[in-house]
Deep mutational scan, measured.
Amino acid sequence: TFTSYQLEELEKVFQKTHYPDVYAREQLAMRTDLTEARVQVWFQNRRA
């Protein structure tokens, strides 16, 4: 599960791009204290 802060950050990036590159995902992962893999999976699920 994600915190409301994490979801907010993820959604913010999703609004800009549905396909963030690895750099964007790593920045987001650091900001949200998630792994890059978790961020990647979240985007895959969000796009589905």
Rank of each mutant, 00 (worst) to 15 (best):
45 N>R: 15
36 E>D: 08
21 D>V: 03
9 E>S: 05
6 Q>I: 04
24 A>C: 09
26 E>H: 12
40 Q>L: 12
27 Q>M: 09
19 Y>A: 04
7 L>T: 08
9 E>Y: 04
22 V>T: 14
37 A>W: 13
31 R>I: 14
13 V>S: 06
26 E>S: 10
6 Q>D: 01
25 R>G: 02
32 T>Y: 05
39 V>F: 01
41 V>Q: 15
14 F>K: 00
44 Q>L: 07
37 A>Y: 14
44 Q>G: 04
48 A>G: 13
2 F>L: 13
24 A>N: 04
37 A>T: 07
40 Q>N: 15
30 M>T: 06
19 Y>M: 05
12 K>Y: 05
32 T>V: 14
27 Q>V: 10
15 Q>S: 12
44 Q>P: 03
27 Q>A: 14
21 D>T: 08
14 F>M: 01
38 R>K: 13
5 Y>F: 14
12 K>C: 05
19 Y>T: 06
18 H>Y: 06
30 M>E: 11
19 Y>D: 05
4 S>H: 14
7 L>F: 04
31 R>W: 07
4 S>P: 15
1 T>L: 13
30 M>H: 11
15 Q>A: 15
28 L>H: 02
47 R>G: 03
32 T>F: 09
46 R>I: 02
31 R>K: 13
16 K>P: 04
24 A>W: 08
6 Q>S: 02
28 L>K: 00
5 Y>D: 10
19 Y>R: 04
14 F>E: 00
28 L>R: 14
36 E>F: 09
43 F>C: 00
27 Q>D: 11
33 D>A: 11
3 T>N: 09
39 V>Y: 01
41 V>L: 15
45 N>C: 07
32 T>L: 14
40 Q>K: 13
9 E>R: 04
28 L>W: 00
27 Q>Y: 08
27 Q>P: 07
45 N>H: 09
30 M>Q: 10
27 Q>G: 06
12 K>S: 09
47 R>E: 03
48 A>N: 13
15 Q>E: 12
33 D>W: 07
11 E>Y: 04
39 V>L: 07
9 E>C: 08
18 H>Q: 10
26 E>N: 11
11 E>A: 02
39 V>E: 01
47 R>M: 05
48 A>R: 12
5 Y>W: 12
20 P>T: 00
6 Q>Y: 03
47 R>N: 08
19 Y>E: 05
34 L>C: 03
23 Y>D: 08
11 E>S: 03
11 E>M: 13
15 Q>C: 06
38 R>L: 15
30 M>P: 00
11 E>G: 02
24 A>M: 15
39 V>A: 00
34 L>V: 04
4 S>C: 09
17 T>D: 08
14 F>S: 00
9 E>N: 03
32 T>N: 04
3 T>G: 03
4 S>Y: 08
45 N>I: 10
48 A>L: 14
14 F>L: 02
17 T>I: 05
27 Q>H: 09
8 E>P: 09
34 L>R: 00
47 R>D: 03
39 V>W: 02
38 R>D: 15
9 E>H: 06
47 R>Q: 07
22 V>R: 15
1 T>K: 12
33 D>C: 11
10 L>Y: 01
25 R>D: 00
39 V>K: 00
11 E>Q: 04
22 V>F: 13
46 R>P: 01
39 V>N: 01
5 Y>A: 04
3 T>A: 06
42 W>H: 01
32 T>I: 15
33 D>K: 10
29 A>S: 08
6 Q>G: 01
18 H>K: 12
17 T>W: 07
36 E>T: 09
18 H>T: 08
17 T>S: 12
31 R>E: 06
47 R>K: 03
22 V>S: 12
31 R>D: 05
16 K>W: 11
3 T>F: 04
43 F>H: 00
2 F>Q: 02
23 Y>M: 13
33 D>G: 15
36 E>C: 05
18 H>V: 06
13 V>L: 15
22 V>G: 09
22 V>Q: 15
16 K>N: 08
30 M>W: 08
23 Y>A: 12
17 T>H: 07
3 T>I: 04
7 L>S: 07
42 W>A: 00
47 R>V: 08
21 D>C: 06
